[in-house]
């Protein structure tokens, strides 16, 4: 005997309606919410038009440099700690972002007359930063809108890099990478972060930490590649390019990838 699909599905459509009073209360809430939203839009529009009018009439326009995307800036930047200048093109051709003021290395203030060379350790710190966070993550998406990176340490056998970035989505990422292989010097190569399966043969990075919106992301695993390194004559690092590919596991799993380039 043939059975009918419609008959089999019919029991689904036998539920009791929600009481009408409940529905009416819900409709009232919706109406209130809609009116509030409309009111808010009107207030924002009035304030926006008023502010624009005031700005045009008074001629008091904002300093555009306040709005500029640091990653797109080509001019030297200043901070409360140091006046910095762009380094020679040969030492950091891709330097585009300001240094991380809190983590800038100790050293003399440099000026245009004291342009450093790659062989000195007191050169002006410059850095650039790119990041490709997981597209499926709700907090981080796309390339950074603004970001900065800086040395915490670049002694022989120990590189420590801090970065702080706001991606195009909402939220912010703070990161800290400490590369400290067993040898005393660095070379181009790959280092493992945490305990990634299949990466046991790589030298282990001592520490890596990431936070999303101030929340720690557990113990990231993955790799850090030193893709370019230039040593100064005294053995210190003059410029460095790192690429990291990490997997965070604190709230689900998502990759965070990026590169950091620094000179100085």
């Amino acid at each position: 005997m043939t059975r009918d699909l419609r008959d089999a599905l019919a029991p689904l459509a036998t539920g009791e309606p929600t009481p009408l009073a409940t529905l009416e209360a819900r409709a009232r809430t919706l109406r209130t919410r809609r009116r509030t939203a409309v009111g808010a839009c009107v207030v924002v529009a009035v304030l926006g038009v008023g502010g624009l009018t005031w700005g045009l009439v008074s001629g008091n326009t904002s300093d555009r440099t306040d709005w500029a995307d640091p990653t797109e800036s080509t001019a030297p930047t200043t901070t409360s700690r140091a006046v910095t200048t762009a380094p020679p093109a040969t030492s950091a051709p891709d330097a585009t972002a300001p240094e991380l003021a809190d983590t800038a290395p100790e050293g003399p203030v440099t000026t245009a007359a004291e342009v450093p060379t790659p062989t000195t350790s007191a050169a002006a710190p410059t850095s650039s930063f790119t990041l490709d966070a997981a597209a499926n993550d709700p907090f981080v998406r796309g390339a950074p809108r603004s970001g900065q990176a800086g040395w915490l340490s670049k002694e022989p056998g120990r590189i420590q890099v801090a970065f702080d970035v706001t991606p195009r989505g909402t939220g912010a990422i703070d990161g800290l990478l400490l590369v400290a292989p067993s040898g005393s010097s660095f070379a181009i190569g790959r280092f493992a972060v945490g305990s990634s399966a299949g990466l046991e043969e790589l030298p282990l990075v001592s520490s890596a930490a990431l936070t999303l919106n101030g929340v720690a992301c557990g113990d990231p695993t993955g790799t850090v590649d030193i893709t370019e390194i230039i040593h100064s004559t005294d053995g210190r690092i003059a410029s460095l390019r790192l690429a990291f590919d990490l997997m965070c596991t604190q709230s689900g799993e998502y990759p965070v990838r990026g590169t950091v380039s620094m000179a100085g």
Binding site: L12, A13, G15, P17, L20
Partner: peptide
């Protein structure tokens, strides 16, 4: 109200599926 009482079970069934 009559429209609601007639339609709700079918909408509910469809959403459940």
């Amino acid at each position: 109200e009559p429209w609601y009482r007639a339609e709700f079970p079918r909408v509910l069934g469809a959403m459940t599926m």
